[in-house]
Amino acid sequence: MVSWREELGRRESAARERIAELRGQIEELTGLLVEQEVVVSRLEITRETMSEILSADESVTGPETGESVVVDLVDEPVAAGGSPVGVRLVPTWSAQLDADVLPSSYRDIVEVLADAVHPMRAHHLCAALGLSTDKNKVEGFRSKLKRLVERDWIAELEPGLFAARGTSMPTGRAPGQPGDAGGR
């Protein structure tokens, strides 16, 4: 007959082995969870991008007259099947256009920067617009900022520091730089 101490030790040993087994499964599942979260994040970014592309409207309302005018929104001809790939959502800035011609997400960026006291970094703009400040979301948002810079709607005063069009670099340290009390 087995003593109660030996039986208790056997059960304790079995429980510890099961705990180790479960911890291994948790690590494996955590790795799988992280992979799937990355996939979902990429799919969300793709959905947002495609929604912007597919919601493009080639005619916009003129700022002064309110009449519908056609603005050159196409970089390249649209494919014969009517594919919207190549549609330019953000026209190049000109004095005849105001921010109302931009899709709402781009218009919001231009308006926030126009009201800003100082140049802003992408993650600060995300926070100001109520968007996620997760690193992957900010990187996707940065492409919108770069597009607005390319089309002369906003200025990039130095790498990663964005301001309203026509703004010059302020003297002193840029906001968000190390040593700045309001920075990171």
Rank of each mutant, 00 (worst) to 15 (best):
S104E: 13
L32K: 00
R88H: 10
V117E: 13
E48G: 07
V71G: 14
A20S: 06
V2I: 03
D100Q: 09
L29C: 09
V78A: 14
S59D: 07
R184P: 04
T46C: 09
A95Q: 09
R47H: 11
S68W: 02
L113Q: 09
A95E: 03
G9K: 14
M120T: 08
D100W: 03
P103E: 08
S105E: 10
A128G: 02
L29S: 10
L161V: 11
V39Y: 05
A116V: 12
R165H: 04
D100N: 08
A116L: 05
V60K: 15
R5E: 00
E58L: 08
G172I: 08
A15E: 08
I26V: 15
L8V: 13
R147D: 10
T46N: 12
L145V: 00
P119K: 05
Q96W: 06
E156H: 07
V90I: 08
I154T: 07
L148T: 09
A20I: 02
S168W: 01
D180H: 15
D98C: 04
G82Q: 03
P84V: 05
A181N: 11
I109F: 07
I109Q: 02
V39D: 11
I154K: 03
E12V: 13
R11P: 04
A174Y: 07
I45H: 11
P159G: 02
A95V: 00
K146Y: 10
V60L: 11
V101C: 12
Q177E: 15
L129S: 02
L32D: 03
R18Y: 08
L157R: 11
A116I: 12
E21R: 08
L73A: 07
S104L: 10
L97C: 05
S3R: 09
S83G: 13
G160N: 06
L97K: 07
V138L: 01
G62W: 02
E21S: 04
D134R: 12
R147I: 06
S68T: 10
E76D: 12
D98L: 03
W93V: 10
D134V: 09
G182W: 15
G166A: 15
P77K: 12
N136K: 13
E21N: 01
M1Q: 01
S83A: 11
V90M: 03
E44N: 04
G62C: 09
L29Q: 14
L89D: 10
V60P: 10
L113E: 10
D134W: 01
V60Y: 06
V117Y: 10
V117P: 04
V40G: 00
S83K: 00
P159Y: 00
E156L: 07
D115G: 11
